[in-house]
């Protein structure tokens, strides 16, 4: 049942770091996070790793496993061959704090830049009426567990740090789309998506969708529809002609 696996884990801090090799026991049914915990308990008690629920619900344990951005608690060891080396590195896009832990404050800063839900002024609590078909698009986006894997993988910032200022990242562009499609939100968000949050940086290459552990169709259901809505307002003279407020 159990076997000894070869792990390579990034150890280090903002100044320096390197991959370290480990031999570690793996048992049936375990996930990568279990193995990291075993390393902590038996070989390096100060190995830094962020986690919380160990059930894929909180989005804390994001890392890159054999180069693929994933949740450690949802990556089963059975997906690797027993003789395969498993390399675990921190998310590349965010500054390293230590070992597998990165500073994800970029995301919280971006979250604050998206104007919040603006409820209709004339409805009291308890009077909200919404149809299921009208809420379900936004509901898909609200499944987001804020693991920031999409933010980490999107090449716009991963490969070009200089875009961080101007680009909110897929998770927060999706937040704009969520509010945009919210049946009772009263704010007008199209223009901002393009001018403030950098929707135009996205070249719809879908890596955010590929890595999302919640399987949210970020590109197809949030980003492209948002681009289309922006086109209605900015780039399409015909649509502008026939424009009506929220239908």
């Amino acid at each position: 049942m159990g076997y000894q696996a070869h792990f390579r884990v990034w150890r280090g801090d903002a100044d320096s770091g390197a991959l370290r090799d480990f031999r570690v026991e793996v048992n049936e049914g375990e996930v990568v996070l279990d193995v990291i915990h075993r390393l902590q308990a038996t070989q390096c008690p100060d190995l830094a790793v962020r986690w919380n629920c160990k059930a894929g619900k909180c989005g804390s344990c994001s890392a890159e496993i054999n180069g693929r951005p994933r949740l450690m608690c949802m990556t089963r060891m059975s997906t690797f061959a027993e003789d395969e080396t498993v390399t675990v590195t921190p998310m590349r896009t965010f500054p390293l704090v230590r070992d597998l832990v990165t500073d994800v404050s970029y995301n919280y800063a971006k979250a604050r830049e998206i104007p919040s839900f603006q409820p209709p002024a004339d409805l009291a609590p308890g009077e909200y009426r919404m149809q299921q078909v009208d809420v379900q698009r936004s509901q898909e986006f609200r499944k987001c567990i804020e693991c920031f894997l999409c933010q980490n993988t999107c090449h716009v910032v991963r490969d070009h740090e200089d875009n961080e200022q101007a680009f909110a990242g897929p998770r927060y562009l999706m937040r704009v789309a969520e509010l945009e499609m919210h049946p009772l939100d009263t704010a007008d968000r199209h223009q901002d998506a393009q001018t403030q949050h950098g929707l135009g940086f996205c070249n719809i290459t879908k890596c955010c969708t590929e890595v999302c552990p919640e399987h949210i169709k970020i590109t197809d259901n949030a980003l492209i529809p948002l681009k289309e809505r922006v086109a209605d307002r900015r780039y399409d003279p015909l649509a502008r002609l026939f424009r009506r407020r929220k239908e």
Binding site: D15, T89, T93, P95, L96, T102, D103, V104, Y108
Partner: peptide, 12 residues
């Protein structure tokens, strides 16, 4: 999140 006193330095 508001604590980040260290400077951007990406790993690997």
């Amino acid at each position: 999140m508001t604590a980040s006193t260290h400077h951007p330095g990406r790993a690997d």
